[in-house]
Simulated assay, not measured.
Amino acid sequence: MADPLVTEALKKAAVAWVSVGGEPARALWCLPIDDALYVVSGPGEQAAPGLADAAEARVSLRGDHGGRIVTWPAKVTRVEPHSEEWTVVAPQLATKRLNAPGPATALAERWAAECAVNRLAPAGDPEPPGDESEAAPPRESPAARPAKRPFRLHRVRGATRR
């Protein structure tokens, strides 16, 4: 039986922060079905390095206010294409996929061939809330550059009254 806080947070989850193998958490869209979260990853979908082959992960769910509600360990299982679970879950995921290229049936078939659908089920007690912010420093990126001072053609002086 899952913790009541985890169960309630799962019901309203649309995005989960998932960390695999101590890597920084990534925001992934998900769909809650039967006290578990289902996540699609792979080519043409969201990037979730290591999730397809993982056995466990750490999941954080946030509220409407942006703050963390709960963080819990999850057991990760891959949903095998065309299995009984797949026939129930894949169509639901495909209809909830925003900006899907093509019809839901074609999307589910592409997932079966190229992507991974994973089930993240609660596997232990949630982590106690801490005082730390869990904010991570920005990742290195070639797109980042130092901010420059704004250009001013003339010196701006305060307005004078007459």
Results as ranks from 00 to 15, higher is better:
3 D>M: 08
3 D>T: 06
4 P>S: 04
5 L>M: 04
5 L>I: 06
6 V>P: 12
7 T>A: 12
7 T>M: 05
8 E>G: 09
10 L>W: 02
11 K>C: 10
13 A>W: 02
15 V>G: 00
16 A>P: 01
16 A>R: 00
17 W>Q: 04
19 S>G: 11
19 S>H: 07
19 S>Y: 08
20 V>G: 07
21 G>K: 05
21 G>W: 06
28 L>E: 03
29 W>R: 02
29 W>D: 00
31 L>R: 14
31 L>I: 10
32 P>K: 13
32 P>G: 10
32 P>I: 08
34 D>M: 14
34 D>T: 08
35 D>N: 06
36 A>Q: 11
36 A>G: 12
36 A>W: 15
38 Y>R: 00
40 V>M: 02
44 G>R: 11
45 E>D: 08
47 A>Q: 12
47 A>H: 11
50 G>P: 13
52 A>F: 02
53 D>C: 07
53 D>E: 15
55 A>H: 15
55 A>V: 08
56 E>I: 04
57 A>N: 05
58 R>V: 13
59 V>R: 08
60 S>P: 09
61 L>Q: 02
65 H>I: 05
67 G>Q: 09
68 R>M: 13
69 I>K: 07
70 V>H: 14
71 T>V: 09
71 T>I: 10
73 P>W: 13
74 A>N: 06
75 K>S: 11
77 T>V: 10
79 V>A: 08
79 V>M: 05
79 V>C: 13
82 H>I: 01
82 H>Y: 07
83 S>N: 07
83 S>I: 02
84 E>C: 03
84 E>G: 10
85 E>F: 03
85 E>L: 15
87 T>H: 15
87 T>D: 14
87 T>E: 15
88 V>P: 08
90 A>M: 06
90 A>G: 03
91 P>Q: 00
93 L>P: 01
93 L>Y: 06
93 L>W: 13
93 L>N: 12
93 L>F: 10
93 L>A: 09
94 A>R: 01
96 K>Q: 14
98 L>K: 12
98 L>T: 13
99 N>T: 05
99 N>I: 00
99 N>V: 02
100 A>C: 08
101 P>K: 13
102 G>L: 05
105 T>S: 03
105 T>W: 08
106 A>H: 14
110 R>T: 05
111 W>Q: 09
112 A>F: 07
113 A>D: 09
114 E>T: 14
115 C>W: 11
116 A>C: 03
116 A>G: 04
118 N>G: 03
119 R>F: 02
119 R>T: 05
120 L>W: 02
122 P>V: 06
122 P>T: 13
123 A>E: 05
123 A>S: 11
124 G>R: 05
125 D>T: 06
125 D>S: 12
126 P>R: 05
126 P>K: 00
127 E>W: 09
130 G>C: 11
132 E>Q: 11
132 E>F: 13
133 S>R: 05
136 A>C: 14
138 P>Q: 01
138 P>V: 04
139 R>H: 02
141 S>Q: 10
141 S>E: 10
141 S>W: 06
143 A>P: 01
148 K>E: 06
148 K>N: 10
149 R>Q: 02
149 R>P: 03
152 R>E: 06
152 R>W: 03
152 R>P: 01
154 H>V: 07
155 R>A: 03
155 R>D: 01
156 V>E: 09
156 V>H: 14
159 A>S: 15
159 A>R: 15
160 T>Y: 15
160 T>Q: 15
161 R>N: 06
161 R>F: 09
162 R>H: 04
